[in-house]
Design a binder for these strands. Structure first.
Lengths: 344, 344
DNA sequence: TTGAAAGCGATACCAA
DNA sequence: TTGGTATCGCTTTCAA
């Protein structure tokens, strides 16, 4: 079976209709259950559908009809990051329960990949697009405008999105952590993250964090790991570098929990006691955060719910309903045992 | 914009052709780059394509032509399980690099969900299907046979698959762990997992494990957590129940690493020393396994590679190439510090 | 190198 | 309640 050969011969609606002795239109009405036919006719048609194993060609349906497809394009940066996997799970389940199918696009955190994927997915006439992130290439923006589809931008809340936005304020989440740590008495804060070419959610968190720390009379020393994913090892080595630089740091805020775990591992290796010698804080509240002997101080976001809410927003927009421009799903800080107990 | 309204007016090939002063066919040839036109013509057409922002309607292309779509349906049990997220990542990246798009289906480990999803996705004329798992409903099998598409069954290697199979032998992986633990001197083994309605990979692992243990003169006490996902908490409570049952167990084999982490957490709470009082072994080698203070004894599978290989198999099958019926991607046991050191 | 016409499988619209 | 016919955007086929 070569790609060039004719596709497998399938049963068409016309064949079902002929077998049942009715017109295509009548068969079509029966299959759509839109009424306008007798019970007798219905039975005849359905009998042939079962007999012939008829599977409708939805491509033709969308093509001929005046509806869009039931595809929803979903772009996700990467699935190695547990939180995005959860978001996707929430999206796909909810979308599926409304009769839509997810067409996945992994963008590797670059707007170029996103642009290429948008171009492709738009050619399939999707019902809408759910995009992770709020920055898009110029050409991507042009295409999206021209397509005129419902667009849900998720992750970092956007007060002036293309269409609607669902997520949390990453700036605020960083700010809250900064304020919390300052409140515990920390002043010499460190930050360990990966480097970003473009403005993104982690950058927003760092900005909020720095603002809160500086407002509280503290300072932040930053350590970026170049060209790396925000995972365990960069957290380990980033911590090593930060501490080797001689910076006097009493607590480190990490880009996410995975990196924080790496940092904790380094501290253990270097015989640095947590939280006595140094405090550790993460972001995301990964399920395994509770595996550790010490509960990690972090910030909890319901990623599954973020996904579900995004899908609900999409379904609403497809149906032409209005939906809040910016839907904040909220977060809460999780005080753990990797930072000092509340001073008072 | 209601669902019932006409779809957004888009630019069609005919409009591009007219603007360029050529026929539809000529424009079509230029866009496909199949040759048979002058450079001058090509330039004229492409200029109008850019000017008008033409996006081809691939639905119409597939519909009119004799090719299938570039969709590949991919069914995954769930994404809460980190290993499946990695598999999906590998699949989508590789598929994307070959010009195919992933249409996702989350089956929640049930063949009923899978059947419903297969029915839907087939109606979109996909180029092929990648299915996680080897058991399918009767009706699903009928549909797959009728569709006559390339099918790649992944995860548990299948010597007589529908089409081709990519994965590892879960039976063998369980057997190897059983043999290893017996080799360390353990004889009273426990197993903690979730309950399964259907035969699945975890069941195969347990069977292989039990065989090896019994061959080695040991025995296995099983503890199943009903109706639960194979994650941290069931591991915790399953361990508690197993030990509370009074079973004398010197080592516990868990369905996967997440459950093993839960078990370790319980042991810590109950002041049971690992590995002095009890040994712990998992499956899957999750990245965080190396986060723990003690390296978990587990079994490593390259999930990303499993995904990539599956996608390569799919691409090969779509092109009509032959591909090994069963492609074993292998695994290796990771001796950790949660079990005794080698006795000798 | 180019173009005209038929047709893919369904639905919309109008007529009976 | 039913059916005929045009049509969606593109490719195939055949002719020029």
């Amino acid at each position: 079976m070569s790609e060039k050969e004719r596709k497998i011969q399938k049963i068409s609606l016309a064949e079902v209709a002929q077998a049942a002795g009715v017109s295509k239109m009548t068969a079509s009405r029966v299959l759509r259950g839109e009424g306008g036919y007798s019970e007798n006719t219905r039975a005849k048609v359905m009998a042939k559908v079962d007999l012939l194993g008829y599977v409708p060609n939805r491509l033709a349906t969308v093509f001929a009809g005046d509806t869009n497809s039931t595809f929803v394009g979903v772009s996700i940066p990467d699935l190695g990051n547990e939180v995005f996997a959860q978001v996707l799970e929430g999206i796909d389940r909810k979308l599926g329960s409304h009769g839509y199918q997810t067409v996945l696009g992994l963008t590797q955190h670059t707007i170029e990949e996103e642009e290429a994927w948008i171009r492709t997915v738009l050619s399939w006439q999707p019902a809408g697009l759910i995009l992770t992130g709020r920055s898009h290439s110029r050409r991507a923006l042009d295409m999206l405008r021209t397509a005129g589809l419902p667009i849900v931008e998720i992750w970092d809340l956007n007060s002036s999105p293309l269409d609607v936005s669902v997520g949390i304020s990453h700036y605020d989440s960083g700010f809250e952590m900064g304020r919390y740590l300052v409140g515990l008495g920390y002043r010499a804060l460190g930050y360990v993250g990966t480097s970003h070419d473009t403005a993104n959610a982690a950058t927003a968190r760092l900005e909020g964090f720095s603002k809160a720390v500086i407002d509280g009379g503290g300072s932040v020393v930053r350590q970026f790991c170049l060209h790396d994913t925000a995972s365990f090892y960069p957290g380990f080595y980033g911590t090593e570098q930060l501490l080797a630089s001689g910076a006097a740091v009493d607590c480190i805020y990490f880009q996410n929990d995975s990196m924080a775990f790496g940092g904790m591992q380094y501290c253990q290796k270097a015989a640095i006691e947590i939280p006595d010698d140094i405090g550790i804080a993460g972001w995301g509240d990964m399920p395994v955060a509770s595996v550790l002997q010490r509960r990690l101080t972090t910030l909890h976001v319901s990623h599954l719910r973020l996904g579900q809410t995004s899908a609900e927003a999409m379904v609403a927009r497809i149906s032409g309903e209005t939906y809040p421009t910016a839907k904040n799903i909220g977060f809460h800080l999780v005080p753990g045992a990797t930072t000092k107990r509340n001073v008072l």
